[in-house]
Computed example of a mutant assay.
Amino acid sequence: MTKPFRFGVVAPLRTDVPAWLDRARRIADSGYSTLLVPDFPLTQPAPGPMLATVAARTDLRVGTWVYASPLRPAWLTAWEAHSLSLLTGGRFEMGLGTGRPGIEDELRDKGIPGVPPPNGRLAQLRETVERLRELDGPDRHTPVAMAVFGPKARALAAEVADTVTLALGDQPRGEVELLTRDFRTTGNVELALAVPVIGDAVAPYMAPPDTDPAALRAADALTVLPDDPAAAAEEIQRRREEIGFSYFVFGADFAERFAPVVAELAGR
């Protein structure tokens, strides 16, 4: 079953607060569905206050892209997510993952003991979602977007997530089609695609700064789109038709340039 297009923007706070809020209002006015913030402690304010502030000033949905689960106990992440869902009138989406590359060193630097092994991180993801469902109770359902890659993580996401995004790099189109096959078969999960590279520009906090756009294009990777909006719109439609991606996430620096794409495709 084909899901309608929607579009999100990862918007870290890299300016003064008034300029960032002005950008959030422009994103809302351009028809985007969701404003998202990354989980990089101490490089910006905490995700919860940032998202609550945006939700109070716009009609955007808001979400984390994504909580790095090893940084907090499961109950704490669930409590914050439930609180944001309540305070935003159901406009919060909890993005959750096992942590970016190098998270082990970050945990040690912050004095967090006992870096969990991969299986322990998956157990923590499950526990976080279970705690969130307990807090939500029967009358609330906070959507969960899960960033995964390996087979065990994909199986967990198929079981507990509403939205799934693959933690992609330079994997070619054909490989991504295979990785998403099980999700397309069930048809219950929204497939999201984070696109950190537009043309030759790389979005901060969405991909490493040494990302090579030319190499991604040569590999036919799905983490890059052309910077021409018309060509991008055509490719976005192809990716839904062939693979099932319906939720596309860009960096904030591209939001205004791709506003015509959003105007053409959102909700279709």
Rank of each mutant, 00 (worst) to 15 (best):
T2Q: 12
T2S: 12
P4M: 02
F7G: 01
A11H: 06
A11C: 10
V17T: 12
P18A: 00
A19N: 06
W20G: 04
W20K: 03
L21Q: 00
A24L: 00
A28V: 05
S30K: 05
Y32V: 00
V37N: 04
V37F: 03
T43I: 05
T43K: 11
P45I: 05
A46M: 08
P47V: 10
P49G: 00
L51R: 01
T53E: 08
T53A: 07
A56W: 08
R57V: 07
D59C: 13
D59M: 11
V62G: 06
Y67S: 05
A68I: 09
A68C: 13
P70T: 14
P70G: 13
P73F: 07
P73Y: 08
A74W: 14
A74V: 12
A78L: 13
W79S: 14
E80A: 06
E80M: 08
F92E: 01
L96E: 05
G99K: 03
G102W: 14
I103T: 06
I103Q: 03
E104P: 12
D109L: 10
D109F: 10
I112K: 12
I112D: 13
I112A: 13
P117K: 04
P118R: 11
G120C: 11
A123C: 12
Q124H: 15
T128E: 09
E130F: 15
R131M: 10
R133G: 08
D136T: 08
V144G: 05
F149P: 02
G150Y: 13
P151C: 09
P151H: 15
A155E: 15
L156G: 01
A158F: 14
V160D: 08
V160R: 06
V160L: 10
T163Q: 09
T165K: 13
T165G: 15
L168Y: 07
G169E: 12
D170P: 04
Q171P: 04
Q171L: 03
G174N: 11
E175Y: 11
L179T: 09
D182H: 14
T185L: 14
G187N: 07
V195I: 06
D200E: 15
V202T: 13
M206N: 08
M206F: 10
D210M: 07
D212C: 04
A214M: 12
A215T: 08
A215M: 08
R217H: 02
A218M: 11
T223H: 10
P226K: 07
P226A: 12
D227V: 04
D228S: 07
A231G: 06
A231W: 03
A233N: 04
A233R: 03
E234R: 06
E234H: 10
I236Q: 04
I236V: 09
R239T: 06
R239E: 09
E242D: 12
F245D: 02
S246L: 05
G251P: 00
A252N: 02
D253Y: 00
F254H: 05
A255Y: 05
R257S: 10
V261I: 05
V261N: 01
V262T: 05
A263F: 10
A263W: 09
A266V: 02
